[in-house]
């Protein structure tokens, strides 16, 4: 039996509401700023969450943060997929922004894998046209003078 098959596309064109905490963070990104959030126990979550995963308590006031941080772990993508943030080889990294207690996921445009190492310093590269999205951060780049 010759079984039939056919191409099929599933598409959902949803808009999601952000809520106040994520909305504030995305608004700051649109302004070209990073902003974490402080928990009731004094930790700074970056990216910010509405509730502290450690306690379940609502998080508090926003905490302005610099666009710089440290790579806590990374992975090298030699062949990017269409949905990836960069179309040339890049690193995924968890990045702990200075002043934050948690790390965020983003891409690092480092050119080559041997330019990457855990503990290296990186800084944000902003997109020129920003809309209020995690992609307003085009990626992070190694801080000049950081030799592996």
């Amino acid at each position: 039996m010759d079984v039939l098959s056919a191409p099929y596309v599933l598409e959902y064109t949803y808009q999601r509401s952000t809520g106040p905490v994520i909305g504030r963070f995305l608004t700051a990104l649109r302004d070209g700023r990073l902003e974490g959030v402080r928990t009731t126990t004094g930790r700074v979550l970056m990216p910010p969450l509405e509730y502290d995963p450690a306690t379940g308590e609502a998080t508090g006031e926003p905490v302005p943060l610099p666009p710089d941080g440290v790579v806590t772990t990374w992975a090298w993508v030699a062949t990017p997929r269409p949905g990836h943030p960069l179309d040339r080889p890049f690193a995924w990294a968890l990045i702990r922004i200075d002043g934050a207690d948690t790390a965020m996921l983003h891409a690092v445009d480092a050119g080559a894998a041997d330019a990457m190492r855990t503990g290296m310093r990186v800084t944000a590269r902003w997109r020129a046209e920003r809309t209020g999205s995690i992609l307003d951060l085009a990626c992070f780049v190694p801080v000049a003078g950081e030799a592996p």
Partner: peptide
């Protein structure tokens, strides 16, 4: 859907 999915972060990565 706010911080991770827009990056297209696949499971292997």
């Amino acid at each position: 859907p706010y911080y991770l999915a827009p990056l297209g972060a696949d499971a292997i990565s």
